[in-house]
Design a protein around this nucleic acid. Structure first.
Lengths: 254, 254
DNA sequence: CCATCTTTGTGCACACGTTCACAAAGACAT
DNA sequence: ATGTCTTTGTGAACGTGTGCACAAAGATGG
């Protein structure tokens, strides 16, 4: 019910599987490295190794783009760089705004990987009036009041949110209302957006928690005994006391 | 080339699907928010909405952990917080090291989301001797020479790499050799690690490129003329030299 | 021009993930 | 108790992703 705002389209875009799209930047990076070393052609096997994927998967991925290889030879590096760049839309200029210039926002502004491909930081925006005018990465920070004007004047369609969690949804709403249709969210919150708007999230805390899960499994792999003894291999801390439904919680994160 | 070092185990860990593990931190965050508001119980429908997922998916995810709900009522918030925390291994202390204290590394060191759950920043490590002793986020930066000693003295099993791309693999090798078995990689490189070591990567540039792909699709949904004509002409030409060589980005970030 | 060799492109089978739909389980009122 | 109502837990169908294995395509050499 109340599906005015959906969380994910998740639909396959124009025949190219989502999983393939997510790997194209990986291939592009490997190909660019080969291009700089003036390597003329590369086989699926070599390129797959460089990108860290299975060679059959790579060939299938490329087959969605078209038949760009030559049997018996491999792929032309320069040609493939161009085709993938074009498919990803990197042959055009993408102005982006970064909202929330704290530690992370500033780091993003300074990150070379943004500007190096089609992405150009059009503006840095922060809610703190004291930040206004202060240059970060050579770009003066502007106040949130200017957000709508900045988006429209620069034709920005991609926004990066690096605000605290509480500010993320309001900022997101304003970005979308002003015309942004793609959002990269670094704030630890689930964003609600209307249909037609893409959201990708990067969550440092979640990544660590996933690692911790596997780490715990590894630690308890050989210690086969009671479940509380399983974690004893590495950890000295075990406050886990399983009980009835109403027992005491132990952790209090934010 | 066949490598002795695999890139992904990808195997289901102990019955809990990988996709489910990746969502547990999301549920935990939503539950923690409810817990702070002293909400006693929550239905799968409500919690799913808060976490931005389908309710059937949420129930199936929880079913892998056990039967922790009460039919007709829902889930006990506190109990579920505890169960998920335990499953993720957050009831124990995880010392982590951050290697590479540049803009991003410093932002990570200051990031509250790390310390707020079981994760403790045990050390900050950088290759620049000028950084040594300088405090970042209240923690003095140590030189790379100390890496092995730090890992062993603190029993660190999780490492975060925030170095430039070129330094990432050597740093990774040293971390692994010293005993680290889980790595969170922010450097734009594919890392090779031995079996038994987990790597998760966070790549800002890749996320933006994926957004650009979908953005381009949205924009080109109705207008399909101008540039695709030139691209189509190029597409049937298999020479190594393609059109105006300036249109190929051919750039590589750090 | 033919034979041989390399490497692509893909059909197929299988594994994984998602969603629907519903029976079973319990709460609650009468 | 009995019936009704709510919500979980899960079987089953479906969709997506992965990897093997091999025929087809082209290069290369005699």
């Amino acid at each position: 019910m109340a599906t005015g705002r959906t969380h994910r389209p998740a639909t396959r875009s124009r025949g190219i599987p989502e999983a393939t799209v997510a790997r194209l930047p990986l291939y592009l990076r490997a190909l660019t490295a080969l291009s700089e070393r003036s390597v003329p052609t590369v086989s699926s096997e070599e390129l797959a190794a460089a990108a860290g994927v299975n060679s059959a998967k790579l060939r299938k991925d490329f087959s969605y783009l078209g038949s760009y290889g030559t049997r018996g030879v491999g792929y032309d590096v320069e040609y493939l760089v161009y085709q993938i760049s074009r498919e990803l839309g990197l042959t055009q200029d993408w102005p982006v705004v970064i909202v929330g210039i704290g530690n992370l926002g500033a780091a993003l502004a300074n990150y070379g990987g943004f500007a190096s491909r089609g992405f150009r930081v059009a503006a840095l925006i922060d809610a703190d009036p004291a930040m206004a005018g202060k240059p970060v990465a050579g770009i003066p920070v502007q106040h949130t009041d200017e957000l709508e004007k900045i988006i429209k004047d620069n034709g920005v369609s991609i926004g990066v949110i690096a605000t605290p969690a509480g500010a993320a949804q309001p900022v997101c709403d304003r970005l979308v209302a002003a015309g942004v249709t793609s959002i990269l969210n670094f704030a630890p919150t689930v964003l609600s957006v209307p249909d037609g708007v893409d959201v990708r999230k990067v969550d440092l805390s979640i990544e660590l928690q996933i690692l911790a899960f596997h780490e715990q499994r590894k630690a308890g792999e050989e210690a086969a005994g009671t479940e509380s003894a399983a974690a004893a291999a590495v950890a000295r801390n075990d406050s886990a006391e399983q009980g009835p439904d109403g027992d005491v919680p132990a952790v209090m994160p934010a």
